[in-house]
């Protein structure tokens, strides 16, 4: 399976071995880690939740698209679900290829598409005691602009990174 979930630590060595190929001259990987802050708030831990039936289907399509689009040998994406601590590995993407250029491009394509398309949700827990589902909660509360009239971007769900507007105050 070219896209899968695990609720235990991702075994990078085992995942990397699945890409080995004597025709490959190199391998590119991306690791997404749990960071200690987001949008100015101190993050203490994360939860990932997935609609796994569809997520595995959509993730598999993304990896298949990368293999069709770029002349690479093998590609794989593994994503964590459940509770994660700071520094934990949240997502791993690996691509092996005859030449490095297409391996970088395919790896970038997979992680970007996964973040946009696969039904996975991330709940951040903050040092303030607050918590929130990234990309979901603040959008619903105030869909267009930051209170106080600062120059916040107009909200757009087509991007997947968390954004700074309308974060609830820590206290």
């Amino acid at each position: 399976m070219r896209f899968r979930f695990t609720d235990a630590a991702i075994d990078v060595g085992a995942a990397r071995r699945e890409l080995l190929d004597l025709g490959a001259g190199g391998y590119v990987s991306f690791e997404g880690w749990v960071r200690d802050q987001n949008e100015g708030q101190a993050v203490t831990r994360l939860e990932y939740e997935a609609f796994q039936e569809l997520a595995v289907k959509e993730g598999g399509r993304i990896v298949a698209e990368a293999l069709a689009r770029f002349p690479v040998k093998h590609a794989l994406c593994v994503h964590r679900v459940g509770e994660l601590a700071l520094g934990d590995l949240a997502v791993w993407v690996g691509v092996s290829s005859a030449h490095r250029g297409e391996a970088f491009e395919a790896c970038r394509y997979i992680i970007d598409e996964v973040k946009h398309r696969v039904p996975i949700w991330k709940k951040e827990h903050y040092r303030s005691g607050d918590s929130g589902w990234v990309n979901c909660e603040r959008c619903a509360a105030a869909p267009r602009a930051v209170a106080g009239g600062s120059s916040a971007p107009v909200h757009d769900h087509a991007h997947s990174h968390a954004h700074a507007h309308d974060r609830r105050d820590p206290d």
Binding site: F51, I111, V114, K115, H116, R117, W121, N135, C136
Partner: peptide, 10 residues
Amino acid sequence: VVFIPPVAGG
């Protein structure tokens, strides 16, 4: 049926 709120993988 599943309703899918904005996703946040990775």
